[in-house]
Design a protein around this nucleic acid. Structure first.
Lengths: 195, 195
DNA sequence: ACCTGAACACCGTTCAAGT
DNA sequence: ACCTGAACACCGTTCAAGT
C-alpha cells in the first residue's frame, strides 16, 4: 500500500525520489499512522522514527514539520472520501447522495478528530501544497454532489460547496457523540433544502 | 478585574484561598492572557510565570495542566457571552435575539480560535469542573433564547440548544473568514426556522 | 544524494529548602 | 499553607561523519 503522492494536475513536476528515500518515506508514514492512532497527534516523533527503524534525523528530512507528517497520514482518508463521492454520484439518487456523503464525511473526520484538529493550526501562515490540493479535491467532490442535488430540487440554489464542507467539519469536530452529529446533520439538511 | 471563580450553585464549597495565593492566581491568569495572545496557545509556561513575576512551580501548583490555565483565561469570555444573552432577551425581538447571540458567539470563539481548539482535547478523559459549569451556563442561555424564538415561531420545535451550540462552535472553528462564517450562519438559520 | 546517531536546546514537571 | 529556583527528564532540531 504505497502512499500515493497526489497526482496534482498543476504545479511543477518533482523529480522522482531515489528508491530508498521513497521506501523510507512510506515506512515513516506507516509508522506514524500507528503511533498517532495509539498515542494521539502529539506523540513523540522519535518513537515514530524508532518504530519505522529509521534515524530520527531522516524523519525530519522528509517531514520538516509535525504537521506535514500528519497531513501525509491523512492523505489516504481524503482519497477515499473523494472516491466514495464518485461512487455515490453513480449509485444513489440525486436527492440523497449529497447527504449520504456529508454524513460519511462527518464520520470519517470525527474518527480522526485529533489529527483533524492538529492540522489546521498553521504556525506562520504556511500552507502545504498537499493541503491545498485536498481542499480543492474535496470542494470538487462536494460541488458535483451539490450541483446534482440542486438540479433535483433537494438543495436551494446559491449555496457554496466550500460552506457545506465547513459546516460538516465543524460538526465532526464539535459534536460530542454520533447521535449529536446526526441531529446536527439533520438540522443542516433542513437548511440546505432551503427557506 | 479579579478573575471571578464561577459561583457554581452545585458542588462542595471550597475554602477561601489565602490572600497572596488568590493574588498570585490572578497575576498568573493575567500574564497568561497576554502571553497566549502574543505567542499562541502553546506558549512556554515558564514565560508566563516570568511575566507574572512568580516562580514557575507556583504556576504549576495553581494550574496542574496547561488546559486549566487556558480555561481560566477563557472564563471571562464565557461570563460575557452569557450576560450578553440576558441583555438580548430583554432588548431584542424574540425572532432575532437567538440569531444575534449565535452570531456574536461565533465571533467570540473565532477570535480565540487557538484557545478554543486547545481546550477540548482532554488527555485522559479528564473534565474540569469549571469546564462543565460553562457548558451548563451556555446551554442555559442558548436554551432561553431558543425557547423564546420557538414561542415566536422563528425556530421549529424539537430543537436542542446543545446542538445549536455545537453548530455554532463548529462554524467558529472551521470557517476560514468572517464572510464564510456569516454564510454558514445564514444556512444554519434556515435550518432552525424549520423544514 | 541520502542516511545516521549523538549532541544541543528547550520546556514541562518535580523536589528539597525556605517563609 | 504557600512559595521558590534549581535539578531532572523528555523531545524536537541540528550537525559532523558516514555510505
Amino acid at each position: 500500500m504505497t502512499t500515493a503522492r497526489p497526482g496534482s494536475a498543476t504545479g511543477p513536476r518533482r523529480r522522482a525520489p531515489r528508491a530508498d528515500a521513497q521506501r523510507n518515506r512510506d515506512l515513516l508514514v506507516a509508522a506514524a499512522r500507528e503511533v498517532f492512532a495509539e498515542r494521539g497527534a502529539d506523540a513523540p516523533l522519535d518513537e515514530i522514527a524508532r518504530r519505522a527503524g529509521i534515524g530520527n534525523a531522516t524523519l525530519y528530512r522528509h517531514f520538516p514539520d509535525r504537521r506535514e507528517l500528519l497531513i501525509a497520514v491523512y492523505a489516504d482518508e481524503v482519497t477515499q472520501l473523494c472516491a466514495r463521492g464518485e461512487t455515490l454520484l453513480a449509485d444513489e439518487p440525486a436527492t440523497e447522495s449529497l447527504f449520504i456523503w456529508m454524513s460519511e464525511f462527518v464520520r470519517h473526520v470525527a474518527s480522526k478528530r485529533d489529527l483533524a484538529l492538529a492540522i489546521p493550526g498553521d504556525p506562520a501562515g504556511r500552507r502545504t501544497a498537499q493541503f491545498d490540493d485536498w481542499h480543492q479535491a474535496m470542494r470538487t467532490t462536494a460541488g458535483r454532489l451539490l450541483a446534482r442535488a440542486q438540479a433535483a430540487g433537494a438543495a436551494s440554489p446559491g449555496l457554496d460547496a466550500a460552506d457545506l464542507l465547513v459546516m460538516a467539519s465543524g460538526i465532526a469536530v464539535a459534536a460530542a457523540d454520533p447521535g449529536q452529529a446526526d441531529r446536527c446533520l439533520a438540522l443542516l439538511r433542513a437548511g440546505i433544502r432551503g427557506e
